[in-house]
Design a binder for these strands. Structure first.
Lengths: 325, 325
DNA sequence: GTCTGCTTATGCCGGTTCGGCATAGATGGC
DNA sequence: GCCATCTATGCCGAACCGGCATAAGCAGAC
């Protein structure tokens, strides 16, 4: 059964002549005449009697007419369903991202995205580093936010889009004589007790690598899983916190400087990655592009602050904590 | 939507690779590869992910797969229907019927039918009662003639058409004082030796049921598988034969009366049955309608005869048999 | 009876489509 | 690293489809 033949059959039956059907279907009358003949041969049945110059449905033709209408309707329904699927503005998007990325970037970004794609359901999964890559490989997430150095540039299975970079920053009480400029060379951190993120943070590994390069044995006062704990201790004067620039610092009275090595800021590129072998739905591609634009707008979240005009070393008690308003 | 594309899509999805589908469909692999691509372009959707050297259905592909199967089934059903319509006056018709039905009804009916449908080959299979129903269920026959009470009225799988009913008749030598009317109440058969069909006959079961109702213990002289044996013995004065009205009685000098219970003739409806799930060819439907008409014309085949004007008890020898001309 | 308008079916031809063959490139198993 | 298996693409010839021209037939008007 050929659908074009079936269509011709139905239209001819409805309009009564091949000539009228030809006008309707924008096909020459002889071509339709041949299609009717072809369908009759294909089915082994006379569908029309030729009465004078008119075509009249035979009994068999009558019986098959409704079947053919049903078939054409079935095919049309599939085309319509395909169009709905094609518009692709509905579905699920699974994204792996670090906790700090979720807090600092996605907390605002997801509202923007939802305005554009109200019917896409975002599923966030906390993940970082190699864990993110494994989830991608296993198909557990569509997209993974990560630092660029985690991604093997030779892995052809992966595709990525660069987001903004992340700087390593040093934060301390304003009275700490850390640096007279907006930057501090990493080796000059040696005398200061350091407040560091633990090794579950990818940026920690970047910092360790830089220390090795600079032959710096960091004087670690505390390692924490919670960035804000570090900030609170720094504000209380207990040391210098090393944090990534994507961390939002609010309501802390802190001196912020950029950590450098040989004059260059320590920074890592950040990317969003996906498995090239799984074609992304349109709404996933849009997510990447919108995220890149958003990050470009809001980064860096935390910038180095200006040095104070009168730098004094003023010790403060442990419990003299500035309260957020 | 092109049916060939849809077919290719379904077969590739089922077999997992284009190469295997090519073997199944006897088409070269590159041609099928192109059909898949053409269908994806036609629908504007990716139906398969190419993972390594395998094709894996996408989510959209999964959703459309069952639709396409449905479409192909629809088209196949139309082809089958066209073949049935095409065969309209040619084919094989298998009919199950009891021996007496074959003899008394079909022996004349089949000539009439053959005049209308010269190209339909009737295959008669002797069967009765539940055996007929089983053959229908197994698809061994298209149609089954049966007594109505055999057919479960609640079985939705079966369809049936009523033919005429069958009366139970008593036949004896004219000299036997059986009844002064054209009927005899079943209880009045008590003093007579009875010549009965054996239990392979469905009507026998009807007779037994009536005896139980009437508290009649039949005085069975003989039980036979051969109705004509019973008639011969009855003609010879050995007793009263109980026979169905569809049995053609020729050339026998017999007194025939209708057996009643409480004034009502003992009778059973007769039907022709088929399996509703197997669409009948036109010539099968025609068979049913023509049979119903024919049975309406010729029934009852044997009717009660008028009582003789001078009823005498005249013994006759066993070997004085009237020969058919 | 003739003429006109309308219809279907057929011959012919050019353009398009389809499928087979060859093969490059990729993947996976051993 | 080799081999088997797979998909996708280039190329080409055969088959198909539709447009044009037109013969033939039918119905209605005059």
């Amino acid at each position: 059964m050929d659908l074009r033949h079936a269509r011709t059959f139905v239209v001819v039956a409805e309009l009564g002549t091949v000539s009228r059907a030809a006008l309707r279907l924008h096909i020459a009358q002889p071509a339709l005449s041949r299609q009717i003949t072809a369908l009759e041969q294909e089915l082994g049945l006379k569908l029309f009697d030729r009465v004078g110059r008119r075509l009249v449905l035979t009994g068999e033709g009558e019986q098959l007419l409704s079947d053919c209408r049903g078939l054409l309707n079935y095919a049309s329904a599939i085309d319509e369903r395909a169009q709905l699927l094609q518009r692709g503005d509905t579905g699920v998007l699974k994204v792996g991202a670090s906790p700090q990325h979720i807090e600092s970037v996605l907390s605002t970004f997801l509202h923007l995205y939802a305005q554009r794609y109200p019917n896409v359901q975002i599923k966030l999964i906390e993940a970082a580093g190699l864990d993110t890559m494994k989830m991608l490989e296993r198909g557990e997430i569509h997209l993974g936010q990560n630092l660029a150095y985690i991604v093997d540039p030779n892995d052809q299975r992966l595709a990525s889009l660069s987001l903004q970079h992340v700087d390593l920053l040093a934060a301390c009480h304003p009275s700490v004589m850390l640096s007279e400029t907006r930057t501090i060379e990493i080796s000059k951190l040696a005398p200061h007790p350091l407040l560091l993120l633990d090794s579950s943070f990818v940026v920690r590994k970047s910092f360790d690598a830089a220390c090795r390069l600079a032959n710096l044995k960091p004087n670690i006062f505390l390692e924490s899983h919670t960035p804000h704990t570090l900030l609170a201790l720094a504000e209380a004067g207990h040391g210098v916190a090393i944090i990534p620039s994507q961390l939002r610092i609010r309501h802390h009275k802190l001196r912020i400087v950029s950590v450098t090595y040989r004059g260059k800021p320590l920074r890592e590129g950040m990317v969003i990655v996906w498995d090239r072998r799984r074609p992304l739905p349109g709404y996933a591609k849009a997510y990447c592009e919108m995220l890149a634009n958003h990050v470009r707008e809001i980064f860096p979240i935390t910038r180095p602050s200006n040095p104070p005009s009168e730098a004094k070393h003023v010790p403060v008690s442990h419990n003299t904590r500035r309260k957020p308003p």
